[in-house]
Design a protein around this nucleic acid. Structure first.
Lengths: 348, 348
DNA sequence: CTGTTAGCGCGTTCAG
DNA sequence: CTGAACGCGCTAACAG
């Protein structure tokens, strides 16, 4: 059956060394070994040493499934991303946050499994998983306002941390978020202070929670002078949409001296199109972004933007979850807001 | 203890509905329920219906840990990334591949856990995990040639798929990789065909497997004309290193008409610095990249580069692993090479 | 086709 | 301080 040079993998069979083997080697009962492994004080120094030696000798590693079953904990945390079907999951800020969360969870002895909800099927699968308590806690990134998934968590009593403050009153989970509104407000004021008074706001897609908050910040900065007609609603976060925004305002461009954009991609699209139309940035029209992604220094001119530390975002979420996993109480609706800062470059 | 407005989470206690409850509701033994759940044919239509109803009514979801323990499979796959401590994990191509792998594994009913090995600690942790057979299979991204981790897999007989062909003979795992050498060779020839004959190669960092292969491709294209002095060895994959390369060759720039770079970042750095030195790209000096990352269209001029489909890379790796998990035999050293294509833009 | 039962590997009583 | 025994929720092998 199995030809030479062919690998076949068995999922069964594998003479694994168990706690019993260790016990035998160390000349104790396996109950004692278990106590030793779980750091119980009630193990004699003598026995401890023999057990330690036995473990090393036999290369014993505890079986995760058995342990999970016995103590009802999985040492696993699930990071769940909910996105529009159309949207790409691979956004810089999300990747960074995932990476941050992964390392702090890993250091704490947890494994992070990543689940992506971008279709009915995947959403249903994830609901099932959550319902089976397959993880000890959850990190929830709702890149879309669609709430179908959030409901799944109502039936579990495992801790959940969200990546953004929610509007829904029944979602009492704590969250770690950026000062989106403040950041957008501040950079808008920055523009205003530089004498730019005819500003267009390129808003993110409507399904995004961040879009709403940033728009609010823009409005706040403008106060009474705000006019609905000065905001363009993009369909997504991509460069192309920034270009489209400029097309939309093409006929009025001579009366405009600034574009405030809800993220870097949109800003870059705006700059590109402005260049094509022969406008100089920032001399004729200034442009700002949001995120300070790696692309921010690639535009011409380089982007003045709002910086947020996405890696920290992930780390902070993970840390919060870890405290909850330790059993420490956390206030309902608790929110930790991470700062955003203006990065001044050439585009504004 | 627990104040109002405070959430405390219990990791124990949770009256979960088990297979027994379902059995009672459906008036069958729980062995029958188990068979039903595992798709055994030997369940009467009548019983099946009652069980299905009972499951729905009780909102039963099987316990993963128990199932894993009993059947020695975990329904999880680990994606392991090995990087230099200094290097950022968040590289576009890796994120894309992760996303691709995640969706195809998810569709197949597997959860993907991501593990990052970038320190002694994390490496040791991962070795432990692998040794405890905590996953059914592994996707291994060695972004660094450091082999300390690869050894961990020698002691498991779970299937492993690598993201690049290995030089080590004892690592017999199948791999999915790009035609790195061919891609680099072809775009070099493209340059040569355009009459560029004084070319510098900006090589990736020495710890990267891809670096080696791409360099080989460059050499192949040049054949006898190859000269050691025309290659610059970058310390990493970042833009800055591309800029440094140009500095290095500053005094000879007038005699150079092309830079072939091992990735887009390096190429962008080269272009930037060339621009600063007053050279026109591609008129004076042409530049090519590799990856076709999103940044490729942001440089000025836009980058002519080698495209590789990283999402597909992840998908293909996952698919290969799935076939192995199904028990289908796979030849030792089997390698699937994914195509690379030249994307012609303005920089060359 | 179905009920029964013996583990899977480990944590946790409870005596001693 | 330590050993024995039971149970976690489920699968699988065996009778029937």
């Amino acid at each position: 059956m199995t030809e030479p040079n062919t690998m076949v993998f068995m999922t069964t069979e594998h003479k694994k060394v168990t706690i019993r083997d260790v016990a035998r080697l160390a000349n104790v009962s396996y109950g004692t070994v278990s106590r030793f492994l779980n750091g119980s004080e009630h193990v004699s120094k003598d026995a401890s040493e023999r057990i330690a030696a036995a473990i090393k000798e036999s290369k014993y590693t505890p079986n995760k499934a058995a342990r999970s079953l016995a103590q009802q904990r999985t040492s696993t945390v699930a990071l769940i991303i909910q996105v529009e079907a159309s949207e790409t999951v691979v956004q810089y800020s999300v990747s960074e946050a995932m990476s941050g969360a992964n390392t702090t969870l890993g250091d704490a002895g947890y494994q992070m499994v990543t689940l992506i909800a971008n279709s009915e099927d995947s959403t249903k699968r994830i609901e099932q998983l959550v319902n089976s308590d397959f993880a000890d806690g959850y990190l929830l990134f709702s890149l879309s306002e669609d709430d179908s998934l959030a409901n799944a968590f109502l039936s579990t009593n495992r801790p959940v941390v969200r990546s953004e403050v929610s509007d829904r009153g029944d979602l009492t989970y704590p969250a770690v978020d950026f000062t989106n509104a403040d950041g957008q407000r501040d950079i808008t004021r920055y523009m205003l202070d530089k004498g730019r008074s005819h500003i267009v706001y390129v808003c993110g897609p409507g399904y995004s929670p961040a879009s709403i908050k940033r728009l609010a910040g823009f409005k706040e900065a403008l106060g009474d002078r705000f006019d609905d007609r000065q905001v363009y609603f993009a369909d997504d976060w991509e460069i192309t949409s920034g270009e489209l925004a400029v097309f939309e305002y093409q006929s009025m461009l001579s009366g405009i001296d600034g574009f405030v954009c809800a993220n870097d991609n949109l800003a870059i699209g705006v700059i590109n199109q402005l260049n094509r139309f022969g406008y100089r940035v920032p001399d004729d029209i200034a442009v700002t972004g949001f995120d300070d992604s790696p692309m921010a220094i690639l535009s011409n001119p380089k982007l003045t933007t709002v910086r947020q530390d996405s890696m920290l975002h992930g780390r902070a979420m993970a840390e919060l979850l870890l405290t909850m996993l330790r059993g420490e109480p956390v206030r309902q609706y608790y929110v930790r807001l991470l700062p955003t800062t203006i990065v001044e470059r050439q585009s504004a």
